[in-house]
Structure formats: structure tokens, C-alpha cells
């Protein structure tokens, strides 16, 4: 039990990673797929941030009385990754809007039927 609690971050990471990927694979609705993709990407943010935390450490700003700092590198990386994630989801949603306008549906099985007729 204590070992699970000690690695809680990583358990949550794995849960989000597998859950997100499952939604992407299992759901036929294009919006739900994007939600799954977003959850999947979020798990990676946690994976990067967790090892950067130093217990008892503060923000890496030089000040008197503080000499234990957390690693700022993962924060910078993940800020970039969040921007990339937002751009991806935005583009994905824009494509879904266009698909809805062209086909009148965003369910993959219905789209598949429509495309095989065409």
C-alpha cells in the first residue's frame, strides 16, 4: 500500500495513458476520440513533471533561506508540449466541423458507409 502511495503520480500517469488511448481506439465518435487523445497527452505532462519535483524544494528563484529547488526544466518542456497539444486539438476540432458540414455525421461507422458508397 505504501509503495503504491509513494509512486501515486506514476500510477495516475499510467491510468490516464491507458484510459486515453483506450478511448481513442474504442470510440467511433470523432469528438470523443479527440477527448481521449487529450487525456492521453495529459498523462505525458504528469510523466515529465513528476521526476522534476524535489521534496521540500521551492521554485528555482534565488532567495535567502532557501537552498533546495525543484528542477525547472520539465516545466518549460511541458509548457511547450501543452501548446502543441492545444494546437493539435484545435486543428482536430476544426477538421471535425468540416467533416460534419461535408458528410452530416461524425460517427466513424456511418462515415465508413458513406465513403464506400461514393
Amino acid at each position: 500500500m505504501t509503495t503504491i502511495l509513494a509512486d501515486l503520480n506514476y500510477w495516475v500517469t499510467v491510468f490516464l495513458l491507458v484510459g486515453g488511448l483506450y478511448i481513442v481506439v474504442a470510440h467511433g465518435n470523432m469528438i470523443k476520440k479527440l477527448v481521449g487523445l487529450s487525456i492521453f497527452q495529459t498523462s505525458v505532462y504528469l510523466l515529465f513533471i513528476s521526476p522534476g519535483k524535489v521534496l521540500g524544494g521551492t521554485a528555482p528563484i534565488i532567495a535567502e533561506g532557501f537552498d533546495v529547488y525543484s528542477n525547472p526544466l520539465p516545466h518549460v518542456l511541458i509548457l511547450t508540449a501543452i501548446v502543441v497539444g492545444v494546437a493539435t486539438i484545435a486543428l482536430g476540432l476544426a477538421l471535425v466541423v468540416r467533416i460534419h458540414k461535408s458528410y452530416g455525421t461524425i460517427e466513424e461507422d456511418e462515415l465508413h458507409d458513406l465513403e464506400s458508397d461514393a
Binding site: V24, M30, L37, T88, G92, L95, I99, S102, E115
Partner: peptide, 17 residues
């Protein structure tokens, strides 16, 4: 072709994964 839209969406999902 309007199938380009679904092709792009599919590539977006797989590419992002």
C-alpha cells in the same frame, strides 16, 4: 475530394499518438 478531410483526421489521430 471530401475524403481528404477524413484522411487528414485519421492521420492527425495516429500521428499524434
Amino acid at each position: 475530394d471530401k475524403r481528404a478531410l477524413t484522411a487528414a483526421y485519421q492521420y492527425l489521430i495516429m500521428g499524434t499518438v
